[in-house]
């Protein structure tokens, strides 16, 4: 029974001692120790966070570089394509123009030939007409030497030319 009856004296001293211990340790030990530990933990956390941030930035930079590279490549592609297109177009244009020129030349040649032909024909006609007149002159001269024949001719001709 004695063993499990708390004695006033010891309760009293324990209470006082414990409160003093709590007060002093709280103020001069736990506060600095816990503060230092949490400061250090904060520091480590901050360092980790900034390292993470740096890594992120690095990643961003790499991504940027890659993007720029890609863009440049794409640009080159388009430029090349454009050049190729331009070349093709130029060639096509030139071809077309040449074609057109050739056609024109051919046409001109044809026109020239035609006009030459016409001129030649006209000349031929004139020549033929001259020859014909000459022949006719001779024939007529021959014919008109004979009066009968002249008359007959006039009659024929009149007969032929009906009054229309």
């Amino acid at each position: 029974m004695d063993l499990i009856t708390p004695e006033f004296g010891l309760v009293f001293w324990t209470l006082i001692t414990f409160l003093i211990l709590l007060f002093i340790l709280r103020k001069f030990a736990w506060k600095p120790i816990l503060g230092a530990v949490s400061d250090r933990e904060e520091g480590i956390k901050d360092a980790l966070a900034s390292a993470e941030k740096a890594r992120q930035e690095m990643e961003n930079l790499t991504a940027d570089n890659e993007r720029i590279l890609k863009e440049a490549r794409a640009e080159r592609e388009t430029m090349l394509k454009e050049a190729r297109d331009l070349k093709a177009k130029l060639i096509a244009d030139a071809k077309e123009e040449a074609q057109a020129q050739a056609n024109k030349l051919i046409e001109q040649a044809q026109t020239a030939i035609e006009s030459e032909k016409k001129a030649a024909m006209a000349e031929l006609k004139n020549h033929v007409a001259g020859l014909s007149i000459d022949i006719a002159e001779k024939v007529v001269r021959d014919e008109l030497s004979n009066k009968d024949k002249q008359l007959k001719l006039v009659e024929n001709m009149l007969g032929e030319t009906t009054l229309n």
Binding site: G9, F12, T17
Partner: peptide, 16 residues
């Protein structure tokens, strides 16, 4: 009231 500094109180002070 018996508030003697007994051996337990003494040892408590040594411990603190």
């Amino acid at each position: 009231f018996d508030i003697s500094i007994t051996r337990n109180v003494f040892m408590m002070w040594v411990s603190i």
